[in-house]
């Protein structure tokens, strides 16, 4: 099972500059746990102290926001694409 995770630029310092990281994992929570194993520190950038996704970081599965799906328990399947998109304020 391969699920590609798109890493935004501000987090690529944690992934050795990889913009796409292949993972496996049955749901989004498992996917993030796997990312944390490979790239320690990335979970803190995505989740707050209470274990919830940070409210200025959006995670999309195949283009749909997981906050409107099942959040961290959103199921993943082979071929899914996960995108991490933080708010950006530059103008």
């Amino acid at each position: 099972m391969a699920i590609n995770v798109r890493i935004p630029q501000p987090l690529r310092n944690l992934t050795g500059n990889q913009s796409i990281v292949p993972t496996s994992g049955a749901d989004l929570g498992a996917c993030i746990t796997e990312l944390e194993g490979a790239f320690p520190g990335i979970r803190d950038r995505l989740m707050d102290e209470s274990g919830q996704l940070r409210r200025f970081v959006n995670v999309y599965v195949n283009g749909d926001d997981v906050r409107f799906m099942d959040g961290l328990t959103t199921a993943l399947k082979d071929g899914d694409e996960v995108s991490i998109v933080p708010a950006v304020a530059g103008g």
Partner: peptide, 15 residues
Amino acid sequence: CLYPAPPPPGMVPSC
């Protein structure tokens, strides 16, 4: 609706 809350100061850098 897109971003319910701003990042804590310093968490997302400015230009």
